[in-house]
Amino acid sequence: MNAFTLYRRMAGASIKAQLRYPGTFALQLVGNFVTTLLSFFGIWSLFHRFGSIAGWDIGAVAVLYGLVNVSFSVAETLGRGFDVFGSEYVKTGSFDRLLLRPRSTLVLLLGHELRLRPIGRFLQGAFVLGAGFWLSPHVSWNTVWLLPWAVTGGAVMFLGILIGQAALCFITVEGLEVVNVLTYGGVEAGQYPLTMFARWLRRFLTWALPLSAVCYYPALAMLNHPDPLGMPLWFGLLSPAMGFVFLALMVLWWRRGVAGYVSSGS
């Protein structure tokens, strides 16, 4: 059995398991949809009161918002195993069992759960994204291929954060809430135009955590909107690749962590 077939089976089993508690599942799905919808209501209220967000119209902000939420929901669906890695694998010692299996630990953890709950966030993000394109005057033809490319880059980058967060658990044992700064905090930061942040934060969000490379710059290219800070438009066509670079770095770090792993349990 190759890794892909194995993953498909694990994913199938996980979907069945999640549908076992239908009441809870429905509540979670609705909750997820409503959370994200409400958070857009907050942004919309700012527009309603102030007319624009620092000179950006609602179409552009809706595209940014939709892009970052769709990307994150894909990573959330795939990467649940890394999210709970500290509490469910390192602290309990059950990571030892994964190490005994003749498969890549990354594949086994991806198969921990294929989470259905983020579908709510995905649908809502896609809906806002569509509305954003509809409201924007100069949507370019590049969007047709740039959109899937940016979403893939974004999903891969968020997956990289989750893997990096799991690798951190080799040191801290328990997962730390502080890494939510990069996941949920990343989503929060990604839905605003980059120009409204201070310079240190702009640099961090482009070169350390390539959030703007998978969200802000591709969105500018899709909307034919010149960058107020002077970055040329073609940068947005290439920049989603930085998401893959980020993932590769995190995987390297993960390998180092696994090589130095000392079991905490029985």
Binding site: L46, F50, A54, A189, M196
Partner: peptide, 12 residues
């Protein structure tokens, strides 16, 4: 993040 957003919105 929220403060920077509010500052940008208010100043604009």
């Amino acid at each position: 993040i929220s403060l920077m957003a509010y500052a940008a919105v208010y100043h604009h």
